[in-house]
């Protein structure tokens, strides 16, 4: 299995719900707590496993706002795993999830340096590295109804912009999405082979204009409605 996420840059509205759901689930999950320092003060700081950045792509008038959630890509050639001196960082053979053994980590930061996606953050409380677990303590939990055996970020996303699945299975939704929408990896030139894929925004659809006269009438009507 090659578990990962397909993230739709077309529909993501940048609401940060995935980040907060992630923090909520994982702070009491297997790698928790996710400590915050000074959370209500002037300079809050703390470990988050998912962050959302907003970019402007292309130039006006064609520019588009793109919200880009970034969490661990569960790379196939994960440098964060090979640089780890203690063996705390590891990639599971069975499903490709990259995890950190909190009992082995010595907090040297080298894995965070090796990660190009900023997916690893040092917990200021425990002094150990924290990262996305793909909610490993959730997706295999047979106590949960089957529909809920998904990462917290995926379940919470109000626009279904995050899809979870197995990229090794060509029939899975993520594989189909990746193929249909030409999903792209981030910074492929570094050679880490990230599993997560980013579905680019769709091209704007040409509005059917109808005939010349009908088009004119529509324009007038639109203008009246607009006022």
């Amino acid at each position: 299995m090659k578990l990962g996420l397909a993230i739709d840059l077309d529909t993501c509205v940048g609401c940060h719900a995935c980040a907060t759901a992630c923090k909520q689930w994982n702070t009491s999950g297997t790698i928790g707590p996710l400590t915050d320092t000074n959370p209500y003060g002037k300079d809050p700081n703390g470990a988050w496993l998912n962050r959302i950045r907003t970019f402007e792509v292309d130039e006006s008038p064609l520019s588009k706002t793109v919200n880009m959630p970034l969490s661990c890509m569960h790379c196939e050639d994960a440098a964060c795993v090979t640089v780890c001196p203690t063996g705390a960082s590891y990639k599971r053979d069975e499903d490709g999830i990259v995890l950190i053994d909190q009992d082995r980590c010595m907090g040297c930061n080298l894995c965070a340096w090796a990660c190009p996606y900023g997916a690893r953050e040092l917990d200021p409380g425990s002094g150990t590295m924290k990262k996305c677990t793909l909610c490993v303590d959730r997706i295999y939990d047979e106590q949960l109804p089957e529909a809920e055996r998904q990462p917290a970020c995926v379940i919470t996303c109000p626009t279904n912009s995050r899809v979870f699945g197995d990229f090794d299975d060509p029939e899975s939704e993520v594989s189909k999405l990746q193929k249909q929408r030409e999903g792209k990896p981030l910074m492929p030139e570094l050679g880490y082979n990230p599993v997560n894929t980013y579905l680019p925004p769709r091209e704007p659809i040409e509005r059917p204009q109808g005939g010349k006269v009908l088009g004119k009438v529509k324009q007038i009507v639109n203008r009246i409605i607009h006022r």
Binding site: R51, R53, E56, V66, P185, L186, M187
Partner: peptide, 29 residues
């Protein structure tokens, strides 16, 4: 920034880094 965001042929500029105060990433990198 193009390869980092997968928009290889367009101009890309950041609007918001997603956090109001410096995080571990800011302090380290």
């Amino acid at each position: 920034i193009q390869t980092a965001t997968s928009f290889l042929n367009q101009k890309v500029r950041i609007l918001d880094a997603g956090h109001s105060a410096p995080s571990f990433l800011n302090n380290e990198f």
